[in-house]
């Protein structure tokens, strides 16, 4: 039986978002707030909101994507998050902000910004392909099961 690569990518990207969001959510939010502040893009109140909401969006959209539930919403949500990450990291690179580590996975793994932007772009392309091939990505998913 051939492995459906779209299912594998869907689950992997979903799990990546779950791990990343969960790690930020279970620790003190101040740690992630510090990372948001270091990108120096938002006013203080915006940084507060981003630090409190982004990990939830990451975690929930990752769960829905991994399970293949409401993919019509989960895939665009993940793509929007990835686009936001690319913009945020991109501006930090252009402005040469003194950021040693991206903070993308909390404290689990750390990447320099130039690596992160490549990884995020790659993930964005893969998620875009999944959105285009939703019928294939939807196999072995809750959406597929519930639509039967």
């Amino acid at each position: 039986m051939a492995i459906n690569i779209f299912i594998v990518f869907r689950i992997l990207i979903g799990v990546l978002f779950v791990v990343s969001g969960f790690e930020k959510l279970i620790g003190p939010y101040q740690n992630f707030l510090y990372i948001v502040q270091s990108y120096d893009m938002l006013p203080a109140w915006g940084e507060e909101i981003a630090a409190r909401t982004m990990p939830w969006i990451e975690f929930v959209s990752g769960v829905f994507m991994a399970l293949g539930l409401r993919l019509t919403v989960a895939l665009p949500a993940v793509m929007a998050l990835l686009m936001a990450f690319i913009v945020v990291v991109g501006q930090a690179l252009i402005r040469k902000l003194p950021i040693d580590e991206c903070g993308c996975f909390g404290t689990l793994i750390s990447f320099p910004l130039n690596v992160v932007i490549v990884l995020d772009s790659l993930l964005l392309v893969l998620t875009g392909i999944l959105a285009g091939k939703r019928d294939d990505a939807q196999k072995f998913s809750l959406d597929g099961y519930l639509n039967e």
Partner: peptide, 14 residues
């Protein structure tokens, strides 16, 4: 029916 159960499953997962 599927629509209804999808809503319920989504709520449970959330």
């Amino acid at each position: 029916m599927a629509k209804k159960s999808k809503k319920l499953v989504s709520l449970i997962v959330l």
